[in-house]
Design a protein around this nucleic acid. Structure first.
Lengths: 342, 342
DNA sequence: TTGAAAGCGCTAACAC
DNA sequence: GTGTTAGCGCTTTCAA
């Protein structure tokens, strides 16, 4: 409340014997000041440990040096600290760390459209929106308020929007199918999530295209992201009932871990009877028995790209996106066969 | 930049046919307005989708509805997204989620004392500082700027400071020692970290006290937090060289996992030859072979307490701290013996 | 090259 | 009850 607001620009001006305008110019490198005053003012500011008030500055410049991060997957998960799922939180860490390197702070913001709107949310310089939905209200809001944003994963509604980056999931998916095929798989099932984001939509399309080219009949199963391992487990039963395929690819590590449990319960051996893989790595894939092959996401690279895009966007520069980064498919026991062609 | 700043208080005032002051009062429930105008103004504001500018408001009220989270352990780890360590990130998630429920946004702020200071850092309403150090410059800065803060883990320098919460680690530690003792341990070694925070200081004290009361000679080893599993591994060799104790307690899950690797390399069987446990759970403890007994931290409870304390502190109310929450010691294979007294 | 002054959007005294 | 007004700390014309 009645907090000591620290050294203000007036204090510096007074001490340096110049006007506040001069101080502002000196510190921001703007205007036409003599090198002498500029230096003197800077010295005084330094000495007084002056720090410009971000709020006041923001009020004038309408830019505060902070960006927002809104994780749509978490919003729809309904839980912000899911156990064993370190993907999101590592992502938060990665974004914060990278942003800090650029002098940007990161604010984690929940669904912006839910009232009351988090204070400051509308005052941030820009946003990183992860995995936007179809008809995403958050995107719609940012668009309407003309707040710059970039997305992790393309916006499924706007093919013309190019400020996004992602790990090249479609490439990874194809690699996995090929890996399965090389190990003798003739039938492959896909377990996807239900969030209507590009990740789910595009990978199903990739899957169907691949099936078509390989002459395989597609088998697509759905399990809500928030159902986690349980969802995977129950899907496993359905899959077994439908007839065990040669291989199963799950979108998330949690789903895959659940599927593994379900398969095991039904006496289906992995990888001998059917192979298993996940399109995103997590604690679950790394530590299931057998360990589950999975795509290791490299949050850092993608984050760097996103920050570049966002900063360009904020600066009003033309978009250089989209950016696709490559991730690594790590083969583990769940899809490793001693006899390549069974 | 030239962003459409949205609906301002003047727009609302004009439309409602009142002064800006009236609008401010109506929306904030302050002053003496007739119920009629208050309602009318609110209706108009609602209709126009008016949202007060957080910066302008903050400039006047010096409070922005956002708090900072500064994680000293991460600062000293030198890495903001360590792999497999979900404690921190789950903590970030927990804080964000809880804070959001209270209408607070959370900004992850790196070491505040490093220049350049993150914008907004000094304008936040308060701070949660996790695991402050001895002579912690961040604490010192907050103190000097009179910014309210609470800490996760006590401030080792200020016994009189009571605005902190923590899981009752000392209780957990004693439980572990008793568990070891009940399984026949006569000698127990402690592997602690090197960060000079309360967690390290107090647990060593607890250990020594317990040893004294049990008539056991203390054996304390140190491994820097940032050395992770490698550090634990190398400590294991030292421990073996010094003579294998009946049980080993490590502070972190990473250390414990490393120690396990080291012990195994030296042919020391766990839990048969020596038992092992960790004072904080992580992916490493859950999935080592054998799985390592560990204290499961309940971030949510502690976070709730911290937010209560912080909000009281911000409101200028007296401190209700410190708050100790209890965590659960989960016994896993690394300390489970078939013959209780070996 | 510098200073004075307007004003960003809001809150809170103080008039009326 | 309600309106007028003076700032919060800063940036940025515009004069001097």
């Amino acid at each position: 409340m009645a907090r000591s607001k620290g050294v203000t620009i007036r204090d510096v001006a007074q001490r340096a014997g110049v006007s506040v305008a001069a101080v502002s110019m000196a510190l921001n490198g703007t205007g036409t000041l003599s090198a002498a005053t500029r230096l003197r003012v800077r010295a005084v500011a330094e000495e007084m440990d002056y720090q410009a008030d971000a709020l006041a500055r923001g009020l004038r410049r309408s830019s505060v040096g902070a960006i927002g991060l809104v994780m749509r997957s978490l919003d729809s998960l309904g839980e912000y600290a899911p156990r064993g799922v370190d993907v999101f939180s590592r992502y938060i860490g990665a974004v914060s760390a990278q942003a800090m390197d650029r002098g940007l702070s990161v604010m984690l913001v929940p669904d912006l459209t839910k009232r009351p709107t988090p204070p400051l949310a509308l005052s941030l310089d820009g946003y990183i929106v992860t995995m936007p939905h179809v008809d995403d209200p958050v995107v719609e809001l940012l668009e309407r308020r003309e707040i710059p944003y970039v997305t992790l994963g393309r916006d499924p509604d706007r093919p013309e929007f190019t400020d996004w980056a992602t790990e090249d999931e479609q490439l990874s998916f194809r690699r996995i199918y090929e890996h399965f095929a090389a190990n003798g798989a003739r039938s492959i099932a896909l377990v996807r999530g239900t969030d209507p984001n590009a990740w789910n939509i595009d990978s199903e399309a990739t899957y169907r295209a691949w099936c078509e080219s390989a002459g395989i009949t597609p088998r697509v199963y759905r399990s809500a992201e928030r159902a986690g391992e349980r969802g995977g487990e129950s899907v496993a039963h359905t899959i077994v009932d439908d007839g065990v395929p040669d291989a199963i690819l799950c979108h998330t590590g949690r789903q895959a871990a659940g599927v593994l449990v379900g398969l095991t319960a039904r006496g289906v051996a992995v990888p001998d009877r059917t192979m298993l893989a996940a399109a995103s790595d997590s604690e679950h894939t790394r530590h299931s028995r057998p360990a589950i092959s999975a795509v290791e996401l490299h949050a850092v690279e993608t984050t760097l790209a996103l920050l570049d895009l966002l900063q360009a966007r904020i600066a009003g520069e033309p978009s250089a996106g989209p950016v696709l980064t490559t991730s690594r498919f790590r083969i583990r026991a769940s899809s490793r066969r001693t006899h390549p062609s069974a």
